[in-house]
């Protein structure tokens, strides 16, 4: 079997999965997901600098609050703000915009799964077509990013021992995950104790609230 045939079969399997997903989810959720995915991607590529500037402005505002700008000396606070580096720099701008896009897509996917928010519709064939379109869009947008991990596995190695290739892929993805966590950790350091307290309390209340509600019923 030629490499082209293998690629075709793999791509067909991938599209069948997205077509089936479209069939299950319905036409309106798939259309919403398609539009939000494409529009948000184009907007972030073309006008992403607005989101970056807003995030940097918010970062400076946090520095202003932490340095007592709202209550203490204005001069000290202004100096702290002017010396504070931008949260989003030219180096991490692409990664940040990709993260924003991924969050938008994920939220859209979750929200459109809820039939109370978006009804499914009856056009099953259109739903399958939109599912396929979503598959193509995700392939076009995600493959260049995933390719950075996938290219580390030589094709011969993958053909000779598929399980070995899977191990390499999982190991590589795990290392990417660990490095990301370490980078995020270094980026957010130092976290004030008050922030830890708020995070822990909020998480516990968020978990406790639905349990409390179910008890009322």
């Amino acid at each position: 079997m030629t490499t082209e045939t293998q690629i075709l079969i793999a791509f067909a399997l991938y599209l069948i999965f997205f077509g089936w997903l479209g069939y299950r989810r319905g036409v309106w959720p798939e259309l919403t997901l398609f539009l939000v995915t494409v529009v948000s991607w184009v907007l972030l590529q073309e006008r992403g600098s607005i989101v970056v500037r807003m995030t940097n402005f918010f970062g400076k505002f946090l520095v202003l609050i932490r340095s007592g700008g709202l209550t203490g000396s204005t001069e000290d606070a202004l100096q702290a703000v002017s010396e504070a580096p931008n949260v989003i720099t030219d180096e991490n701008q692409y990664g940040f915009l990709f993260l924003v896009w991924a969050v938008i897509v994920l939220f859209t996917f979750i929200l459109t799964t809820n039939t109370k928010i978006v009804r499914r519709g009856k056009h099953k064939f259109a739903a399958v077509l939109l599912g396929l379109a979503n598959g193509l869009v995700f392939a076009a947008l995600l493959l260049p990013v995933l390719g950075q991990v996938l290219t580390t596995i030589p094709a011969q190695q993958a053909e000779a021992a598929p399980l070995n290739a899977l191990t390499v892929l999982v190991t590589e993805l795990w290392q990417v995950f660990v490095r990301t966590i370490q980078n995020v950790w270094q980026w957010v350091q130092p976290v004030p104790p008050s922030v830890w307290l708020i995070i822990i309390t909020l998480l516990l209340v968020l978990i406790a609230w639905p349990v409390r509600r179910s008890a009322k019923r």
Binding site: L197, I200, T201, L204, V205, A208, W209, R212
Partner: peptide, 10 residues
């Protein structure tokens, strides 16, 4: 503090 808030929710 979180313990008391949880207790209040409870």
């Amino acid at each position: 503090i979180p313990a008391t808030i949880l207790l209040i929710v409870r």
